[in-house]
């Protein structure tokens, strides 16, 4: 088990812990994210990044930040799970990339960039992954409508005589 006070001594007291059912989460500010994750990997044995995702809090009552990025970690030896949540705000939605720690973060970070527009500094190849390159919105943001803005129909029509 990772001891919270130990982490607070190392990375400042802004680290907050919470529980829900069997999930254990710690909230950290963006400034200490990378040293904290590095330490979790090397010192505490969280060798696997299970998932990396984000949430847009735009329509959530009482939310203070625009986005959260969530790192779900797993200790392969003890089976312990830990979620690390970090708030991100516009217009400077940038976080350090964890590609150097876990190579599995490569596509996950690209997906978060594609869907939410949160960029990761230090990522070797941060391009759109799911949407076409020329797409200019971030679909999973709450201010993007479910049915899109007409991009899905913006194609030429092929007729019989034209083919």
């Amino acid at each position: 088990m990772v001891c919270l006070t130990e982490l607070q001594q190392k990375f400042g007291s802004q680290i907050v812990e919470s529980h829900f059912r069997d999930n254990r989460r710690i909230d950290v500010p963006a400034s200490t994210l990378l040293p904290l994750l590095t330490s979790l990997k090397t010192d505490y044995g969280f060798s696997m990044l299970v998932d990396l995702t984000a949430v847009d809090w735009l329509e959530y009552d009482g939310a203070t930040d625009r986005f959260s990025v969530i790192y779900l970690l797993l200790n392969m030896d003890s089976g312990e799970r830990l979620a690390v949540r970090v708030p991100v705000n516009l217009p400077e939605a940038v976080l350090p990339s964890v590609y150097g720690l876990w190579r599995g973060a490569d596509w996950m970070e690209r997906e978060v960039w594609d869907m939410f527009g949160i960029s990761f500094s230090g990522h070797p190849d941060l391009r759109r992954i799911l949407m076409p390159e020329e797409f200019d919105a971030f679909p999973l943001r709450k201010d993007y409508p479910l049915k899109g803005r007409g991009e899905r129909h913006n194609f030429p029509v092929i007729t019989r005589s034209g083919s």
Binding site: F20, N23, V50, D51, T53, Y60, L72
Partner: peptide
């Protein structure tokens, strides 16, 4: 109004969902 991650062992590997309840 909480967030949860839970996973099952699907045929292809760990298939998990991260749900935010509101």
């Amino acid at each position: 109004r909480e967030q949860i991650y839970a996973a099952t062992e699907s045929p292809n590997g760990e298939l998990g969902f991260y749900i935010v309840g509101n």
